[in-house]
């Protein structure tokens, strides 16, 4: 698979632990603080990925994943 493709199969080594850490990050925060923390995490991860095409594909994925209610 070329490196410039967003990986969408399950890849997390410890999904529950990761989710718990993520949830923990937001414990006790106001919505505003949560928004800031999420933004920081997003920027750290985006920089780690680096590849522009992959990042755009991730943005597109989120854009098309609209809630159904």
């Amino acid at each position: 698979m070329p490196e410039t493709t967003l990986q969408t199969e399950p890849r997390l080594q410890e999904p529950d632990l990761f989710y718990k850490s993520l949830a923990q990050l937001h414990a006790g925060l106001t919505p505003e603080e949560s928004l800031l923390v999420n933004s920081k995490l997003l920027l750290v991860l985006a920089n780690h990925i680096g590849d522009h095409q992959v990042l755009l594909q991730a943005i597109d994925l989120v854009k098309s994943n609209v809630s159904t209610d």
Partner: peptide
């Protein structure tokens, strides 16, 4: 929030 996250 995105902008402030960058700055912090």
């Amino acid at each position: 929030a995105l902008r402030n996250a960058v700055l912090e």
